[in-house]
Amino acid sequence: MAGGMMKFGLIGLLAIGASCASHQQDGRAIWANYIDVERAYHPAEEGVRSPAILVTVDGARWQEIFDGEDPSRVAAPRRKARDLFPNLYHLATDRGAMVGAPGKGHIHATGPNFISLPGYTEILTGRSPLACQSNDCSSVATPTVLDEAYAAGARVAAFSSWEKLRRAITVAPGRFLVSCGREGDPTIHPFPGGGEYRPDSVTAYNALRYLVKEQPDVLFVGLGDPDEYAHRGDYDGYVRALSFADAVIGEIFTILDRMGDRGARTNVFVTSDHGRAEDFRNHGGWAPESARVWLFAAGPAITARGRVASNDDRRLADVAPTLRVVLGLESDGSSHAGRPIGELLAEPQPTTAHVELEHPSRDSER
């Protein structure tokens, strides 16, 4: 019966994805394969305290996440945040919490350059991205939280629409599944990106199918379409891409809810690598407002209480330390490391010193 119910949910998600852009024609045959996947869920012995899923939504600014559609860019009546993101708000209200809401304290990228690869490096290593301040920097030299989970014995997998994100995922490529971008597949059209970019519809299909079939202990999913549409100046496309990301989050929880105890023990985190400049289209060190981001979390390790107040400004470097607590991994003692977001967690956590860094600089954007 679970298989039949899953077919309905995934077909619905396909319909949402197909409405995002004309490029979805290339992905429909792939999505169709998803309905053949049926597997009985079962508990598994993982090398971490409990399973976890981390989802990033590239370039999704806090304004839409908390306030809804921009009144300067859409005709009235505009949709409020709860209408745009029904799944996120249901999860954050009934099953989890959110950080970065207006009047509740900030969470921001450390920078000083507020673009993608430094942001992802900060999220996944839990450290200030001092060695990476462009989208062309080398692969990470510090083990990521994904590497640490793998070393502890967890089954790990990572999927990303943006091909360069692989540089922030692991210090040792080949250890676990990393699927980023088109990977040379000529049948996948890169729109709304270019080059080796892979649309979110295909990335989401691959990640959800893997979640169903393989039940990894730690799963990373990097969605990128909102940033691509924003750089095109296409606000309608940006909002549709955000709605699709929300549908993917909802589908993740639909799958988890059908996994029984294993799904009930899984914690899910959703955040962004950077925000946007006042002009909406761009972001970077020259636009300090584009540092501001947001974080949603839900699961048994998270206290369900909606918008959480943070007395101190939080950073993207705090995401990995929070994941380490949830996963049962050792903390990072580096002076550049973040600290667990204790106000999210059901169990209070000790705090460490907060590190301030140098001034912003301008660079190419993503």
Rank of each mutant, 00 (worst) to 15 (best):
N87K: 07
Q63S: 13
P190Q: 07
G275M: 11
T93I: 04
G100V: 01
H90Q: 15
A149V: 09
P226Q: 14
A298G: 12
A75G: 15
V293N: 04
V319R: 07
D136F: 08
G328I: 04
I30M: 08
M259W: 13
W62N: 06
S19D: 14
I16K: 15
W62I: 11
S272I: 01
I115A: 02
N87R: 09
E183P: 00
G100I: 01
G260P: 04
G103K: 09
E163Y: 10
A141C: 11
D36A: 15
H354Y: 10
H108A: 15
A264N: 07
T254P: 01
R73Y: 08
S201D: 14
G195Q: 10
T254H: 10
G68Y: 02
P143D: 09
G195L: 13
F85S: 08
Q25M: 05
F159H: 03
G111Y: 04
R49K: 15
G174C: 04
A247E: 09
T142F: 04
G174N: 06
R265A: 15
Q133Y: 09
L54M: 10
A287N: 10
K213D: 12
Y41N: 05
E46T: 03
D332P: 02
W286G: 13
G285Y: 01
G111Q: 02
P288A: 10
A230T: 12
C137L: 07
G181S: 12
D94E: 15
R265Q: 15
H42D: 12
M5T: 06
